[in-house]
């Protein structure tokens, strides 16, 4: 018997997974170690599933980071994905990227971009560059108005300035080896369009109008969790949004969902299938209990994924993951 959370639409989701032979859903390995190192953020975006903001105090300690670094040494792990909140607001981020940089893994830092212009954080782009860190910058809309409706006043212009700063270091420039990817997510209650199409539009406007460049665009479907769920409820859009997610269920995307190859670590070392389950406090289902480092990765590699109605966001259309769409 698989796991079923008491969430609206969860039953329908499980039925759809069952029809395509994917229920119960099991992890197939641990290739990506995602670390949510802080709930603090200089912004309070309207869609934030972890409800990050300046008032949050949760920070991963250096001791927990050290446990993550030891876990990341496993040869099966190819990618370390550092997120938050604004990961820059954890005072040990610099130490973490330097230590992770020694492991010869792909290391990503998810940034809201604008923090890189703030006092006390301006040196970080150079630290990222020196350690070969990939920067994944949030820019929900290539039109300034949409970005600012979601992330706050003046954010678009400052994000463009931060991209220009990163471009100056070689990020997003051909041949530099320094990768700058951007993240798009809809500014409202609708699903994103095709990733390839939107990337073309981003390139046309960001390059043509603002003179900045980037490597790739990740299209994310907003997950009905945290502040985004509140928004859907308060605006009367919840039912229609969930219906559109359900109607867009794609078996091909379902087979490739990120939780099957990801282990998400919370600020206190707790383990989750993904960042959304982390926001919902749904810890991994595993025969052993513990935090990062307490459980052997092979035990976690075959775990059953905990599911809920929110999972429909990752299986809609071309699918959605922290690396963007899952299918063409």
């Amino acid at each position: 018997m698989g796991l079923k959370e008491k969430t609206d639409f969860a039953g329908n989701f499980i039925e759809k997974l069952s029809i395509c032979g994917l229920y119960p859903l099991y992890a197939t390995g641990v290739e990506i170690l995602q670390m949510n190192i802080t709930r603090r953020c200089n912004l309070s975006c309207k869609h934030c599933h972890v409800q990050a903001g300046p008032g949050r105090t949760e920070n991963m300690t250096r001791e927990t980071m050290a446990r993550c670094i030891r876990a990341a040494g496993d040869p099966g792990i190819t990618t370390v994905d550092i997120t938050g909140g604004a990961p820059e607001m954890n005072p040990d981020l610099e130490w973490l990227v330097v230590e992770m940089g020694k492991l010869d893994k792909r290391v990503l830092v998810r940034s809201n971009l604008v923090i890189l212009l703030e006092e006390g954080f301006r040196h970080l782009p150079a630290v990222f560059a020196a350690n070969g860190v990939e920067v994944v910058g949030s820019l929900p809309d290539y039109l300034g108005e949409g970005t600012e409706r979601q992330r706050g006043r003046d954010v678009f212009g400052r994000a463009i300035e931060a991209i220009r700063l990163l471009n100056g270091l070689g990020y997003g420039k051909p041949g530099s080896g320094l990768v700058l990817d951007l993240v798009h997510n809809p500014v409202g209650a609708y699903l994103p369009g095709e990733q390839k199409h939107l990337e073309t539009e981003y390139r046309r406007v960001l390059g043509g109008v603002h003179g900045v460049s980037f490597n790739g665009l990740f299209c994310l479907v907003n997950c009905p969790v945290g502040r985004y769920l509140d928004y859907l409820k308060n605006s009367g859009n919840l039912r229609d949004y969930l219906m559109s997610l359900e109607a867009s269920f794609n078996p091909e995307s379902a087979g490739r969902v990120m939780c099957r190859t990801t282990l998400s670590v919370g600020w206190d070392g707790s383990l989750y299938d993904c960042d959304f389950n982390q926001a919902l406090n749904l810890e991994v289902s595993c025969s052993e209990k513990g935090k990062i480092g307490d459980i052997d990765l092979p035990v976690l590699a075959g775990r059953e994924i905990r599911l809920g109605g929110h999972c429909l966001a990752c299986t809609a259309g071309a699918g959605s993951s922290c690396q963007g769409s899952l299918t063409e």
Binding site: Y142, L143, H184, G188, Y190, P192, G193, E194, H197, S244
Partner: peptide, 10 residues
């Protein structure tokens, strides 16, 4: 309207 928004049309 939904499709235009999804495609990033202003």
């Amino acid at each position: 309207t939904g499709k235009c928004l999804s495609l990033g049309i202003g």
